[in-house]
Design a protein around this nucleic acid. Sequence first.
RNA 1: GCCCUCGUGGCGAAAUGGUAGACGCGCAGGAUUUAGGAUCCUGUGGAAGCAAUUCUGUAGAGGUUCGAGUCCUCUCGGGGGCACCA
Length: 748
Amino acid sequence: MKATQKYDHGSVEAKWQKVWAQKDLYKTPSSPKNKKYILDMFPYPSGATMHVGHLEGYIGTDVMSRYLRMKGYSVLHPMGWDAFGLPAENYAIKTGIHPDKSTHENIKIFKRQLASSGLSYDWSKEIDTSDPDFYRWTQWLFLLMYKKGLAYKKKAPVNWCPKDETVLANEQVIDGKCERCDTPVIQKELDQWFLKITAYADRLISGLKDIDWPEDVKLQQINWIGKSKGMIIMFKAEDGKVIEVFTTRPDTLNSATFLAVSDNDLYEKYKDTDKKVGKFTGKYAVNPLDGRKLPIWKTNYVAPGYGTGAVMGVPSYDERDMEMAKKYDLDIVSNKPDMKLWELVEKKGWGKKHTTYHLRDWLISRQRYWGPPVPMIYCKDCGWQPVPEKDLPVKLPVDVDFLPHGVSPIATSKTFQKGVICPKCGKSAKREVDTMDTYVDSSWYFIRFADPKNSKEFASSKCIKQWLPVDIYVGGGHVVQHLLFARFFWKVIYDAGLIDKSLPDEPFLKLRAPGWILGPDSRKMSKRWGNVVTPDQIIPKFGADTLRLYEMFMGPFDIVKPWSISGIEGMHRFVSRLWNVFNTGQGNKNTPDKEVNILLHQTIQKVTQDIEKFHYNTAIASLMELVNAIKGKKASLEVLSSLAKLIAPFAPHLAEEVWVEILGNKTSIHTTSWPAFDADLIKKKYLDIVIQVNGKVRSQLQLDALASKNKEEVEKLAKSDEKAAKWLIDKKIKKVIYITGKVINFVV
RNA sequence: GCCCUCGUGGCGAAAUGGUAGACGCGCAGGAUUUAGGAUCCUGUGGAAGCAAUUCUGUAGAGGUUCGAGUCCUCUCGGGGGCACCA
């Protein structure tokens, strides 16, 4: 037996990280059998340092990946960089440092932090969306959409951020403000590129049915798509014009008393009030049902761009219409809603059934620099023409003025437009200078991971078939944006025949969102509160294994929880105890302790089941119980070997150290197989049966498993139990309920 | 306003409708130590009792059930999402 030494996490962790990298231990198998694709939402490499909250998801997928490898699965577990985006560009404006340079410096820092946490990524699969070898295929996929009629340019009122001087997608407007800089967004009429996500609205709803996602995430997507069924009804105005309204209640047409039409100016002006404001147009339309004259009002409360931008005012059945009617003294008639009107309106040709959606087409043009250029050329004679595939990528020019001027900075390049000709007629032409929303990059990166080095295709169909769909996808936020867009891309690529039809038409089979880790003060970690905890503060002092164990032990994976420094100290003590169990506890393999052995197999069962359910906190708790039971004893080699394996996904460095240096194995613990439990061994021989009287626990009975099957026998023994009998004296037993092996309840 | 979620010790939390509080933090007492720290042992929801034990207890009020933290209804509180969507 070796003398007790203190566990030196610093040197142990550094040693194994180096060895693993040298041996390429986590290399993805090239011909997978039983594949599992475990993916994190790849990070934006921002200048702000990574904190312990970002690591929670990465540790969670790492535990899962390591576990699945030991279970014999071929695991793809890659990492990459969502490298395009506004912050790097804004930083360039401030400092003059090119986004490419600052982004890649940040990537280096992120990579070091991930490596120091002992994460088992296969770095040969690394991707970077700002690399021309990547964004070439982003552009290629845009052209695919264009050719399928799913990308188009149109003039439309769009969300404009005056500070960033760019347009934003609907999904990037939070509370009427820019998601990046919090500036109130205004509406502007502009000519922009859109992707026709609305064509997939129904499939984006129905596809949610069979995937294992948190229900609230599914619901949020459904609400965002916002499907509602109704009718478009046509009202003839006196001047012969027709006003179409959308309604979900054609059955209330008999109570319509006015028409309300949207008005951009009123809508903008009274955006922040819920009061109703209207202006009478002086015109009337006719209710086709009864010939009644309906005054036509412009209002602030009819949203432009939804439905037909006009509604029929039905004060008796709509609170807002009622408010409007009362304020402007409009008629309020009240007839009984009539479901027959659905048919009548259609039969008479006054209108037709119609389904409308809250979801808008996805606006992807950005008047900014640091993104993939839209690969289109404008010719005066031929109009918009796609860049020929052989000319991809359209590279971002370097000679640009980053300052935003309301047009893309690329417009300031002297080289970008040089020698550009129309691909159709060959005459001199101009490139599109806008770039694409960076959500386009993240809408397909997970496919590229299957085949990241391919220079002929965005990914070969063979590799896609081998690895996709993603089996487990972990990441927070982005509930409607990224996840909706990525599902849309997958479906489009799927429909284009580029994905084997044996695969599902959903890209992420299981989704789990880690809960935020709050600062020790229970506030969101932020520079402003000075409560940011980074792995660089924790790892040197306590080690990556302690950090990993603590983060997984804090609570349920998907719940918000505050960081606790004494909590991590406690986990550090556990790691020391664990080390001592191995270092001093080497036992004689011929004399296994029977009780410890049973507990070991119960623990194997519990840890196995818990990991699969992402219940890491309770898995670790049961490992603690096992350690508590064997510490100070001489445990058998079987117990120690199994314990090392069980702990390996959580504390990979310590597990490797004891596996090789103490238990004397020659190969890595991370390439061994997961321990199996002996079901017979853990079958209980004796059962504790609770005795209740009127549902209150009064005593308990220890019975042999066989005897517990016999109700009469159990009842007899329970009645004669001293403590229980006390509660049954002078009572008439009305009913006896026996739940086999668990509980016997006397109702008196 | 609508939709979704959560509410359990001093704290993070466990609990297929079947012994509420596993595991950890903190705290208290003890051992060890010149002392502190570290480590180890014991105790720890609340109330009463020397004790065995008893009562009480999962935001609040009802309900279903032999039995409810768990299921149903309402109320209050925290978090998230959508928001004049017709």
